Computed example of a mutant assay.
Amino acid sequence: METMEVCGRNYPVIGYVEDETLGTVPLLDIPMMSDYNWQLRPLQSRLKNPELYREVLGGVEKVIAGLYKWLKEYRKETFS
């Protein structure tokens, strides 16, 4: 299997695309996190360790409320 190194890690090449400017560009199989999990992880961290975030971005309670709101809206849009 062909691989390509990116930032010290090797990823499988799953195909190629042609670009007018760049020429042939490899498509790599790089694992991605969903938007939902991207927001869920900071919420979990803030709930577990609120003292670490107390002075950041207007207070941990405000950030937690914003993350809850985003997650609720995302679920409603995605699963309705």
Score class of each variant (00 low, 15 high):
Tyr53Gln: 04
Ile64Ser: 00
Gly23Phe: 12
Gly15Leu: 03
Gln39Glu: 08
Met32Cys: 12
Glu2Thr: 05
Lys69Val: 04
Val63Ile: 11
Gly23Ile: 11
Ser45Trp: 07
Asn10Thr: 07
Pro50Lys: 01
Asp19Ile: 09
Leu27Arg: 14
Met33Asp: 09
Arg46Lys: 06
Leu67Thr: 03
Tyr68Asp: 14
Gly59Arg: 05
Glu77Leu: 14
Leu71Phe: 08
Gly23His: 12
Leu40Gln: 03
Met32Glu: 15
Arg9Trp: 12
Trp70Ala: 05
Lys48Gly: 02
Pro50Gln: 04
Leu40Ser: 01
Glu18Met: 13
Ile14Met: 13
Gly66His: 00
Thr21Arg: 13
Lys69Cys: 06
Phe79His: 08
Val13Met: 08
Asn37Ala: 05
Pro31Asp: 03
Tyr74Pro: 01
Arg54Pro: 00
Leu67Ile: 08
Gln39Phe: 08
Val13Pro: 00
Leu71Gln: 03
Gly23Ala: 12
Glu73Ala: 11
Leu67Met: 10
Gly23Cys: 09
Ala65Ile: 04
Glu77Asp: 12
Thr3Val: 10
Tyr68Arg: 15
Val17Ile: 15
Asp19Asn: 15
Gly58Met: 12
Leu57Lys: 09
Glu51Ser: 08
Glu5Lys: 15
Tyr11Cys: 01
Leu43His: 00
Met4Tyr: 07
Glu51Gly: 03
Tyr53Pro: 01
Thr3Phe: 08
Pro42Cys: 01
Val6Thr: 05
Glu61Asp: 14
Glu61Met: 02
Val13Glu: 03
Glu73Phe: 06
Met32Asn: 12
Leu28Glu: 01
Arg75Gln: 13
Asn49Trp: 14
Arg41Ala: 08
Gly15Val: 05
Asn49Ser: 07
Leu67His: 04
Trp70Val: 09
Glu18Asn: 13
Ala65Ser: 15
Val56Arg: 02
Ser45Lys: 08
Leu67Phe: 10
Pro42His: 01
Ser45Pro: 02
Lys48Phe: 05
Ile30Phe: 06
Tyr16Gly: 04
Met4Val: 04
Tyr74Arg: 11
Leu57Pro: 03
Asp19His: 13
Pro31His: 03
Lys48Val: 03
Pro26Ala: 10
Arg41Cys: 07
Glu5Asp: 13
Ile14Leu: 10
Arg41Thr: 13
Asn10Pro: 02
Pro26Leu: 06
Pro31Phe: 03
Trp70Ser: 07
Gly66Glu: 00
Leu22Phe: 15
Lys69Asn: 11
Gln44Val: 06
Ser80Tyr: 09
Gly58Tyr: 13
Lys69Arg: 15
Asp35Thr: 10
Pro50Cys: 04
Glu77His: 11
Glu51Asp: 13
Leu57Ser: 15
Trp70Gln: 07
